[in-house]
């Protein structure tokens, strides 16, 4: 188990290394465009060259990469062009905001998804199963920006019960979180539910469930002790991987509701060609994603005795 974890974290570090190379190649290999983006399009050629020289951009790419990477590892992401402050000053508070939004959404979506998935999978092809399946297909077919429009049309304009933006101008306000969370939950619960349903339905077909029933166990005990444990191993991984998808959705939702989170930060950065900010956001996003994947793998191994003891 320990070897496995060491390996898994090793793979994670390697992934991050390759991702950093990729990000560097995409955004920094062309020094001309770096200068243009940092100094703006209306600067003269001499100004840019001077800037490049002063900031070490005339060094070979490999040196620049290593220096860049070194700075990254110690948390120095450079200065944001747009906010004129160190990137880390804007990044961390925004990330905390996103963690709140994403965390609540993930929690609710998982609870709904798991519950409905288990109920649907218990009796495959039954009325409940069909109901849940149809509901899941319907809601996962609506993109986040579309449900944002639908929901604000209903709850902001037609029946004004909720605020239309979530800027949190006057401090943290839970009411402003309702719409963004709803949008994320609507898109995400269906996926969790479908995976849970499939897993549950598969477990219900297995021979060991038949064994449990024919042992004379009460139905509730068969479900609780025999089915759930096995059926929830796969959805656990799905939920952890869902964080990766959630990060995408979060960008849309934050933009749609002007929520001051990490996603809208990345969005603004990309609109303003704020490359150091983009780089930092990308690296942090990938780090979060890779970290959850690693935890998912370790958790899966822990939950599954067939892997744990072999």
């Amino acid at each position: 188990m320990l070897i496995f974890m060491v390996r898994r974290f090793g793979t994670m570090a390697l992934t991050m290394l390759v991702v950093s190379i990729l990000v560097f190649l995409l955004l920094e290999i062309n020094v001309e465009s770096v200068a243009t983006k940092v100094l703006g399009p209306y600067t003269s050629q001499e100004q840019r060259e001077l800037w490049l020289e002063r900031n070490g951009y005339t060094d070979p790419a490999i040196w620049r990469y290593l220096r860049w990477l070194g700075n990254f590892v110690v948390g120095d992401f450079g200065d944001s062009v747009r906010f004129k402050v160190p990137v880390s000053d804007v990044l961390w508070p925004r990330l905390a905001n996103t963690a709140i939004l994403g965390g609540i959404a993930l929690f609710i979506a998982s609870i709904i998804g798991l519950t409905l998935g288990v109920i649907a999978g218990m009796r495959e092809g039954g009325a409940r199963d069909r109901g849940v399946s149809v509901g899941a297909v319907l809601t996962t077919s609506v993109p986040e920006f579309a449900s944002a429009v639908f929901l604000s049309g209903l709850l902001v304009f037609t029946w004004p019960v909720l605020p239309g933006t979530s800027g949190m101008a006057d401090g943290f306000d839970l009411v402003q979180l309702v719409l963004p969370v709803m949008v994320l939950v609507i898109y995400d619960w269906g996926y969790v539910a479908r995976m849970t349903r499939a897993s549950m339905a598969e477990v219900m077909m297995t021979h060991y469930i038949r064994t449990a029933v024919l042992k004379g166990l009460p139905y509730g005990q068969v479900i609780r002790k025999h089915a759930l444990r096995n059926a929830l191993i796969a959805p656990f991984t799905v939920i952890m991987l869902q964080i990766n998808w959630l990060l995408s959705g979060v960008i849309v939702v934050e933009v749609a509701f002007a929520y001051k989170g990490f996603g809208s930060l990345l969005y603004e950065a990309s609109l303003n060609s704020d490359i150091y900010l983009i780089e930092a956001c990308a690296m942090v996003a990938v780090f979060v994603a890779v970290m959850t994947q690693t935890l998912a793998d370790i958790g899966y191994t822990y939950l599954n005795p067939r892997i744990r003891f072999s």
């Binding site: 991702v19 995409l26 990309s270 983009i278 956001c281 996003a285 990938v286």
Partner: peptide
């Protein structure tokens, strides 16, 4: 598989934003 994992570890929209920004 490693290459695939690297690309898939980007949240999709982050990847799109970087690519389109570039």
């Amino acid at each position: 598989s490693f290459i695939a994992n690297v690309i898939l570890s980007f949240p999709v929209l982050v990847l799109y934003i970087i690519i389109i920004a570039t």
